[in-house]
Every structure is written in structure tokens, then in C-alpha cells.
Amino acid sequence: MELRPAKARLAQGHAERLGILGTGLHVDAAWRRWMLMSVGPLALFAIWYVAHEQAWVTQRLLPSPVRTLQSIWTNMTQGGMGEDFLRTLWRTLQSFGIAAVFGVPLGIVVGANAKIYRSIEFLVDFFRSTPATAMFPLFMILFGLGDFAKIAIAAFAAWLVILFNVAYGVMNARQTRILAARVMGASRLRIFRDVLFYECLPQTFVGLRTAVSLALVVIVVAEMFIGGDDGLGKRIIDSQITFDMPQLYGTILVSGVLGYGLNLVFLTLETRLVHWAGRS
């Protein structure tokens, strides 16, 4: 639930833009929030530093945080880590894009039709619960060892999450709103376009956000185990093989930055585009 504070913060930002909160206090409050938020990360680095200095853990396994950050810097500037970062990001976005293009319309159709939903509910739940990694060998046989196998498997996993969430959003549309539109003379198509679409948007965004995180996980793992020569996953596995511990720790941190960043982008989009979520 590390998403909570970020979401609350964005919601507050939105409130400030709307002029709900005063502006006099919030500079000070924002500053204090940042201070508080940096306590955890700083403490982690401090403990890491001391643990390394005091050799609580053998130094071969735990490089100092300074060396780790240095390794990120050198890898970024001359070691091709930036390239790997972009490759992983690009693969994640491709699989996410495929998942969204197929997941959203299908989710709407499935959610709007109780019979279709009931007949595929078990399948969706089953494959959603099946670890995507268990299907690696199958996808390797089907799609080979190239980029497409990695993207396909991540897209598959993300697609199910999106499909499920969109369908759920449509099914839970407020009946009163649909009735209201009907009384006003809206056709089925207009109800679909003007009411159901917006009604399912909040849940759709939950699905999209979960899906992009899942796609990243699957892509990184795929880069480790399905052949290939770039990507953060590949760099992590290479660091392990060559026992380059600073690079291993550094790449893990960079992967974290990527995951967190994607989440933040989606949360921002969500609070901007679905401003009514949870408030109506």
C-alpha cells in the first residue's frame, strides 16, 4: 500500500487547484511533508552506510551506498544503463499499450453483458491467478526468443487485469444514473457513450495502473530469462554472473525508480482525468 500517500498528496494538490484549501498555509505544509517523507529513505541509506562501514554484513555482499550510487552514475554515463532503462521502459509501454487496446473495449462488452461475463468469469480469474512466469517456456516456443515473446507475455498478463477491472467498473455503474439518462431520452448507444464510459473510468484507471506495474515485473523477469542482450533485467542477471555487486544494487534501485515513476505518472493522470473518483 505504498501508493496511498502519493494518491492522498495528489488529491490534496487537486483540492488546492480548486481553491478548496487556502494557499497561505500550504507552502509550509508542503515543506513539512517533504521533510517527513525523506526521513525513511535517508534513514535507510544511513543504516546501509553504517552496516557497510562496520562490516555487519561481509563487504563483498554489501557495497557501500556511495559506491552503489557511483556505479549508477558511471553506468548511466558510459556503461549503457540508460539504454537498458529505455529498452525496458519501451517494452513495458508496448505490452501495456497492446493490453489496453484489447482490454478496455472487451472489458466494456463483457461488463455490459451479464451472460458473457458469467461464462468467462472463471477463465479470467483462473489465468489472472496463474503466475505469468509459469507461461514463459510456452511463450518461448510460440514466439521464439525475440522481443515479441517478452512483450506478448507481459501484454497477456496486463490484458487480463485491465479486462477484469473495466468489466467490474461497468457492472458496478450506478443504476440511478443509467435510469436518469433513460428518462431524459438517451438511446442505448448514448447511455453507453455518455454514462457507462465515465462510470467505469475510475475502475478502469485502477486496472491500467495495476497493469503497467505488472507489465514491468514480467518484462524485467523476461529480460533475465528469455534471451536478449539489453534491458534492466539482463543487466541485473549479468551483474549477478560477473559478481558486480555495486552494479547489481544500482540496477535494482534504477528498476525501482522506473516502477515508481510509472506509478506516479498514472496516479497523476488518474487524479486529473477522473477527478470525481471516490467523491460521488
Binding site: 444514473r177 435510469l179 436518469a180 465515465y198
Partner: peptide
């Protein structure tokens, strides 16, 4: 041509 006012205004208006 009819109009209808629902008890639950919160769920009858379009919040978007």
C-alpha cells in the same frame, strides 16, 4: 416529455 427527480441526487447527477 417527462422529467424525473430521484431521491438520491448524488447518484442521479453526472459527477464528471
Amino acid at each position: 416529455r417527462i422529467g424525473y427527480v430521484f431521491q438520491n441526487y448524488r447518484e442521479a447527477l453526472f459527477p464528471w
